[in-house]
Amino acid sequence: MPKSQEIVLAEPRGFCAGVDRAIEIVERALTKFGRPIYVRHEIVHNTYVVNDLKAKGAIFIEELSDVPAGATLVFSAHGVSKAIQDEAKQRGFNIFDATCPLVTKVHVEVAKLHREGFEFIMIGHKGHPEVEGTMGQLDRGIHLVEDVEDVARVSPAQTAKLAVVTQTTLSVDDAAEILAAVKRRFPNVREPKQQDICYATQNRQDAVKVLAPNVDVMVVVGSLSSSNSNRLREVAQRLGTDAYMVDSPDDLKPEWFAGKSRVGLTAGASAPEILVTQVIERLRALGAVSVRSMPGVLETVHFPLPMGLGDKSMQAAG
């Protein structure tokens, strides 16, 4: 590494309000009800966070049959299908829903328009838990498209009442391209009143668009399973900047930084700041000499906790 190497931090980066809320729900449930607390799917897509909560007493499961009767169960930030909600109620669990409120907003919109006779085209990634949760709000009439080619193949039963929704963690540019193809094929399609892609995803991508052209290499802190982290890497690469995603400082390779004088650093919405700090320490060990933050949007969004886990209930429990 050149001796003058500088690290430039993207702003904003890291945890969003939905992730903060989801982790706090699990931690408060552990405090109030004791271990173990069962969580359906990874609470957020980050290895460090999941391992930290496991150490505190959280047990992550995919099948509700793995949860004992009467146990406390938390739904992950990605949301779940109606079938999962119904099964959990039938099994009598003590349930706390950590679904991000911005995902819940999409679920509510789907349910409302379905009652009005709408079918849906959903823009998203097949197999992602958020997509499965949103599509699982209905038993029919919702069609997934992953790319422009899918739009040409999709065949709703009717087009008079057709609406489009999107996964909240997509690339803004990708979603816009696919939405344009949907509108070309179905000119009367109903769009969301507000874009479904969440504020945090948008802000982090916008920050990378500003930062990437001004650095020699970009590092994105995030797990491979994290959709929004993957999109940050792709945004930088599209701008012609070498970009790598790391789950921990151990993933950094010295050759990525050979001859590079400026390193951009960001983190996905599910990646904790402690990992960013550890990556900075590793980059310093590799030769970086200074760190500065770029100017960026200040995020002040805060989502309330579910009933039964708020401050008053915790004081009462204590």
Rank of each mutant, 00 (worst) to 15 (best):
S223G: 15
M314S: 00
L102C: 07
R21K: 01
V108A: 10
V291Q: 07
E177M: 13
V276E: 04
S313G: 00
D251M: 10
E6C: 04
V131Y: 11
K82P: 03
I59S: 07
S293A: 14
D66V: 05
T277G: 10
V208I: 15
I59K: 15
Q278A: 15
I121G: 01
T47S: 12
V108R: 12
M122G: 00
S76Y: 09
V165P: 08
I280T: 02
D86Q: 14
A111M: 15
E132V: 09
R292H: 02
V301E: 12
S81V: 05
Q137I: 08
A316D: 10
R153S: 13
Y48H: 14
R91A: 13
K32G: 01
V301A: 12
V220P: 02
C198F: 01
K312W: 01
P12T: 05
I7R: 08
T266S: 15
I142T: 06
K253H: 12
V74A: 04
V39C: 08
L138N: 04
G18V: 09
F186D: 05
I178M: 10
R91C: 07
A98Q: 06
V279K: 05
T300R: 13
T169A: 04
D173G: 01
A69G: 07
I84R: 06
R13G: 05
K126G: 07
A271C: 12
V297R: 12
R91T: 04
L53D: 06
Q194M: 13
P304R: 10
K312F: 08
L239C: 05
L298K: 13
A17M: 04
A236L: 13
A207C: 10
G79F: 06
F96N: 02
P129Y: 04
D86K: 14
N203T: 03
A160P: 00
T241N: 14
S4Y: 14
S171K: 02
E149W: 10
G34D: 02
S270C: 11
S155C: 07
D150E: 06
S227D: 06
H107N: 10
D139A: 10
A317V: 05
I25M: 03
R184S: 15
P249K: 06
S313M: 11
L73T: 00
A163M: 11
T169S: 05
V67L: 12
L309G: 03
L275P: 05
I25F: 11
R204D: 01
P306Q: 05
P254F: 06
Q137R: 14
K183S: 07
R35Q: 13
P36V: 04
D250M: 11
P295G: 00
V182Q: 08
A236R: 03
A285I: 02
A180S: 15
T168N: 03
G240P: 10
A88L: 13
S155Q: 15
M307D: 10
N46D: 09
V210F: 05
R262T: 15
S225Y: 07
L211Q: 05
M245N: 02
C16N: 01
G92Q: 14
